[in-house]
Amino acid sequence: MITAMNGDDLRETAHSVAQELPGSELTRPFGPDWDVYKVRGKVFALLTRSAGPQMLTVKADPEDGEALRRQYADIAPGYHMNKRHWVTLTPGESISPGLVREVLTISYLLVVEGLPRARRPVDPAAYAEAAGLAG
C-alpha cells in the first residue's frame, strides 16, 4: 500500500536522493523559490522551495515520460520545461519515496549520458546497474 506523499515528504526525499548522486550540485539560478540540481553544469532536477504547491521536475525519456503520466495521477508534463523531455511530480497518493528515487536517478543518468566521457562523474550503465535500474 502506498502512503500519500505530502509536499514536505516530496521535498525531503528529493533533496536526500539528489544530494547522494555523484557530482550533484545544488544551485538557485532562478531565485529563492527554486532549488535546481545540476551535474557538471547540466540541470537534472528542479524543486520548488516556496510555501505554495510543491513539485519536482525531472528529465525523462519521451516514451518513459508518457508512460509515467499515464500510470501516475500525480505526474504531469514538465512545468515550464519541454513537455516531451521533462515530467513534474506533485504530492499525492500515486507518489512514493521509491518512485521519487527512481525518477530522480534516471534523470541524473540521462544527463550524465549526454556528457563527454571525460566529464562524467560515473559510468551511467554501471551506476544504473548498481542502483537496480538496469535491465
Rank of each mutant, 00 (worst) to 15 (best):
residue 13 T to P: 01
residue 93 E to C: 03
residue 54 Q to P: 06
residue 104 L to K: 01
residue 123 D to M: 04
residue 50 S to P: 05
residue 61 D to S: 08
residue 12 E to G: 07
residue 80 H to P: 10
residue 20 E to N: 05
residue 8 D to W: 08
residue 95 I to W: 00
residue 6 N to K: 02
residue 76 A to P: 03
residue 102 E to G: 08
residue 106 I to P: 03
residue 54 Q to Y: 13
residue 41 G to H: 10
residue 3 T to H: 14
residue 115 L to A: 12
residue 44 F to D: 00
residue 96 S to T: 15
residue 102 E to C: 04
residue 110 L to N: 11
residue 18 A to S: 13
residue 98 G to F: 08
residue 84 R to G: 08
residue 99 L to K: 03
residue 48 T to N: 07
residue 107 S to E: 05
residue 67 A to Y: 09
residue 67 A to I: 05
residue 25 E to K: 03
residue 41 G to I: 06
residue 22 P to W: 12
residue 73 A to W: 07
residue 28 R to Y: 15
residue 89 L to A: 12
residue 113 E to M: 08
residue 89 L to G: 01
residue 71 Q to T: 15
residue 58 V to I: 11
residue 49 R to L: 12
residue 121 P to Y: 12
residue 115 L to R: 02
residue 28 R to P: 09
residue 91 P to F: 09
residue 132 G to H: 11
residue 26 L to D: 15
residue 74 D to W: 00
residue 84 R to H: 14
residue 91 P to N: 07
residue 4 A to Q: 05
residue 110 L to I: 15
residue 91 P to E: 11
residue 121 P to W: 07
residue 5 M to P: 03
residue 66 E to N: 07
residue 8 D to E: 13
residue 68 L to Y: 02
residue 94 S to H: 04
residue 6 N to M: 04
residue 45 A to R: 00
residue 61 D to G: 11
residue 52 G to L: 02
residue 4 A to W: 02
residue 11 R to Q: 09
residue 15 H to I: 10
residue 4 A to S: 13
residue 95 I to M: 03
residue 103 V to F: 03
residue 91 P to G: 13
residue 106 I to F: 10
residue 104 L to T: 06
residue 95 I to K: 00
residue 43 V to K: 01
residue 36 V to G: 04
residue 109 L to E: 01
residue 51 A to S: 14
residue 39 V to F: 03
residue 67 A to P: 08
residue 32 P to H: 10
residue 108 Y to I: 07
residue 131 A to M: 05
residue 31 G to T: 05
residue 25 E to Q: 04
residue 87 V to R: 01
residue 84 R to K: 14
residue 52 G to T: 09
residue 63 E to N: 04
residue 45 A to E: 00
residue 39 V to E: 01
residue 88 T to N: 08
residue 53 P to E: 15
residue 57 T to Y: 02
residue 112 V to R: 01
residue 28 R to I: 13
residue 34 W to L: 14
residue 123 D to C: 08
residue 106 I to V: 15
residue 45 A to G: 11
residue 2 I to F: 12
residue 118 A to T: 13
residue 99 L to Q: 06
residue 4 A to T: 09
residue 5 M to G: 03
residue 27 T to F: 09
residue 44 F to T: 00
residue 91 P to A: 08
residue 48 T to C: 10
residue 35 D to C: 08
residue 114 G to D: 04
residue 20 E to C: 08
residue 38 K to I: 06
residue 87 V to L: 10
residue 82 N to P: 10
residue 119 R to Q: 15
residue 88 T to V: 10
residue 3 T to D: 09
residue 10 L to C: 12
residue 25 E to D: 05
residue 94 S to D: 07
residue 70 R to Y: 15
residue 33 D to K: 03
residue 41 G to F: 13
residue 52 G to Q: 10
residue 125 A to D: 14
residue 109 L to S: 02
residue 57 T to C: 10
residue 109 L to C: 09
